[in-house]
Nucleic acid binder design. Structure first.
Lengths: 364, 364
DNA sequence: CTGAAAGCGCTTACAG
DNA sequence: CTGAAAGCGCTTACAG
């Protein structure tokens, strides 16, 4: 790791100008084969790695795309605090049911994978920021200075810093509601998905009385899903007012608390429709322990399609969002905007899929 | 998104020199309060976002750290190909057991989280590259040009490009074996962990005949774990030659195939010790279907501590690696090297923890 | 506390 | 096909 070599070193070593070195790296076809070979050889010998900073400054594009997500979950849990043991190996009996799963944010993981996939595929690197510690405004600003465009989970960034940043680079909003007409936006068919699920329960499973378990009051996704639910009831002549709504904050714990509360109340609905999978799993946790048969006594459904819902027993009927596609679509929208800054705002709604599994389809 | 403003614009707007603008942003204390206010005001009004490229070039550091991981698993599965449906909602019956879990690489996810956590905490951004499409050499080179230092999953990058890159920036190897003395290196106590687990099985569970299910032949992690296993047998006077070894390639499918093969052979060992969790889960899959009692008839153990092993039934006894800590340690090693380039190579072994769960501790 | 000026390492018209 | 030269937007001694 001596002094890193530069175009100048390579040029001198190969006996050409720095312009030629640059061309060999960027448009090799424009350079005579013999010179190209010579330069490439020097690159190897000198272990030359081009500086992206210099490149980005000169070319006025960085080749990097950004992705910013807030931290919705307790990351502290991930810090492996208990690993501060000083011995090499510890042996412990690991009791079941020590709270939440350790992988809280599969949603983010999949969106990240999709973004990454698409970005690299299109020849861009991806810079990821997950909100934590610093405030969103600072982080977004920091990322914005480093990239050609960025995607942001809607609602994770206050309007002011978002506007600030969007004056410099294109910003794509992921999920949530559209924010005016100023941003490109990709999201999923929340309303339609929940409506389809509710219609299925009414038509095929003959459900007439529901409990709806909602997420946080400020979640636009939650609002859309609830709207779809209500819509289905109305379409089939059921009065939404007869289906109570509880809130579970999108967490597994919230789902458990709601289920306990329900049990205390004494009357069970035929189906508990949850606004996301985490809460539905929490409900299942409690029902399992209390010996309430699912779906025999109560049907339980979720929304999202996270992996844990495929491994629960009974497996969870849910509405699967195309999370990977969401990430990919965000990147594509960004690149499309970059290529054509003047095009009208993009607003994409990705299709969802109702997955019928044993938590709704089993024996009565 | 008009023309992005620069230091010059801000300087002119605030009536100061560009040096002062720079100072306000980097060392605010060095600037008189009134001037500072004025500049900050201009920054807001002009929506000024500093260019990281220019900054990186001038300051000779980018403030970004890199992380490169190969793709060990079938990412194609993640492409949501089935979502190319054109309708907004589809309803399908989702049958159980459609192969692998959709979240194959939790190991990477956790290392990533740890790296990210530590990087941002230390004031650095993180750039992530997951090998895919392009060849590792190109990706690593690309990332190297953009960062101040990078961490790489050992074995994921051939020696030549790794050396090339390490001549420019510090490289930290994650997991795997050390490569000479040239790189900083963080890994976990594979040998000690597997040894402790095997000792437990021998001493507390009275196991004397094992089947060892190994990973890929070229995996150094696998080799270390196997060494720990053999060591435990020898220490307790058991002949390792009496414990057959099968290979399962670290995949769930490989675990299933091995289990089938075992069943065909007709004789079951008292315990199947697997070199990772995925394979152990595959073994459990088959045993469950075939009605082989675990741990009654056969004990099954894994290694890694992935989430799925906490949700299987029976839950999987395993050796948990501190994956988040691994990521954090890699970043710390990198920063330490950056701060002190001449220090001797770092080689960290993080402790592991044997987690006893029902797949080994249940009723006989 | 503030400014003038050099320089970071590339890319990209523009000539030839 | 190749080179000379300007310029990208910052930071950082160096003066004052």
């Amino acid at each position: 790791m001596a002094k890193a070599s530069t175009v100048y070193d390579v040029a001198a070593h190969a006996g050409v100008s720095i312009a030629t070195v640059s061309r060999v790296l960027r448009r090799p076809a424009d350079v005579r084969a013999s010179t190209r070979e010579r330069v490439l050889d020097s690159v190897q010998q000198l272990s030359y790695v081009p500086s992206a900073a210099a490149r980005g400054l000169a070319a006025r594009r960085t080749g990097v795309l950004g992705l910013y997500f807030p931290t919705l979950d307790a990351m502290e849990e991930l810090e492996d605090a208990h690993f501060t043991q000083s011995t090499t190996v510890g042996v412990v009996v690991d009791m079941p049911d020590k709270g939440e799963a350790r992988t809280p944010n599969l949603y983010f993981d999949e969106v990240l994978r999709g973004s990454e996939l698409e970005a690299w595929r299109q020849g861009f690197a991806l810079m990821v920021g997950v909100g934590r510690g610093k405030n969103p405004a600072d982080m977004v600003n920091d990322i914005a200075g480093r990239v050609d465009g960025m995607a942001v989970l809607a609602q994770s960034v206050p309007t002011v810093p978002l506007e600030h940043v969007s004056r410099r680079i294109p910003v794509v909003l992921i999920a949530g509601p559209r924010r005016g007409d100023d941003y490109d936006h990709v999201s999923v068919c929340n309303t339609e998905g929940m409506r389809a699920l509710a219609l299925h329960l009414i038509e095929r499973r003959g459900v007439t009385d529901f409990l709806y378990l909602a997420g946080p009051p400020d979640s636009p996704d939650d609002a859309e899903r609830h709207a779809g639910f209500v819509q289905a009831l109305i379409e089939r002549g059921l009065d939404p007012a007869h289906s109570p709504v509880l809130r579970g904050g999108f967490s597994r714990l919230g789902g458990r608390e709601a289920a306990e509360q329900l049990l205390v109340s004494g009357t069970l609905p035929r189906a508990v429709v949850c606004a996301n999978d985490q809460m539905a799993l929490g409900v299942l946790d409690v029902f399992t322990v209390r010996g309430i048969a699912v779906p025999g006594t109560v049907i339980v459904t979720g929304f999202d399609g996270i992996e844990a819902g495929r491994q629960s027993s009974p497996r969870l009927t849910t509405v699967r969002q195309p999370m990977v596609d969401l990430g990919r679509a965000a990147i594509r929208a960004m690149l499309s905007r970059l290529a054509n800054p003047e095009q009208p705002p993009i607003s994409l709604r990705l299709p969802v899929k109702v997955l019928l599994r044993e938590s709704s389809e089993g024996p009565e």
